[in-house]
Design a protein around this nucleic acid. Structure first.
Length: 210
DNA sequence: AACTCGGGGCA
DNA sequence: TGCCCAGAGTT
């Protein structure tokens, strides 16, 4: 993959998805953290609906804890995996209070100690709440990046590193969103719409499996 | 690497 | 009805 090809791919993605909504509504680091935990196996549109309502009243660790587990499950049930997520969110709120003075930490090492927070969620918080350059690799980013040749790594961490190497730092944040939109609208996991894909000429997928 | 958690949205 | 969803934790 040449630098010129990478530049053309990024430009094409920007043309296609530059006007689309960019992820979760951002308010505070804490709200972004909770919203991102909720986003597992659930579209961002639904997460935004749920969190906009939830955070009207419950926008701090103490407030969330005041709901109790059953109360929290009720508030987030439309996001799916509600029981698991509620347990993790409650544990995370408790640990924020006991280990971090109620403040969301700003390093990868600290963030991934929180229950329900993995590399993807940590990178979303780091890049969107704290301005730390990072690329969050979710299922869409992972799949699309490999198909179109922006990364060929086998693990999430490998793909993350390759993307950071191949994409100019100032475009990391937006490239994350463009790759997700392309994965949702065209480069789907099953039956991708290669025939109508704007990247077809620069993509090996379809003629060469990965 | 494979499996589980999971209810709601949508065709 | 059946398929899919901006992941993380466990085995």
């Amino acid at each position: 993959m040449t630098k010129k090809n990478i530049k053309l791919i990024l430009a094409t993605l920007e043309d296609l998805y530059g006007g689309e909504q960019c992820g979760l509504d951002f308010k505070t680091p804490f709200e972004l953290l909770i919203a991102t935990i909720l986003s597992a196996q659930c579209t961002d549109v639904r997460v935004n609906i749920v969190t906009n309502e939830l955070f009207k009243t419950y926008d701090t660790p103490k407030a969330i804890l005041s709901l109790g587990e059953a109360g929290l499950v009720g508030k987030i049930k439309t996001c799916g995996l509600a029981n698991t997520k509620a347990k993790n969110i409650i544990l995370t709120c408790e640990q924020l209070l006991t280990n971090f003075n109620g403040v969301v930490p700003a390093t990868m090492e600290e963030l991934i100690t929180l229950p329900g927070v993995g590399r993807k969620t940590a990178n979303v918080v780091l890049s969107n709440a704290f301005g730390v350059p990072a690329i969050a690799v979710d299922t869409h980013v992972f799949r699309v990046s490999k198909r179109i040749g922006l990364a060929s790594g086998k693990t999430v961490l490998e793909v993350e590193k390759e993307l950071m190497k191949n994409i100019p730092k100032e475009k990391w944040s937006m490239a994350h969103h463009w790759l997700i939109w392309h994965g949702r609208k065209c480069c789907t996991a099953r039956n991708p719409n290669c025939v109508n894909c704007a990247l077809l000429k620069r993509c090996n997928y379809g003629t060469q499996n990965f």
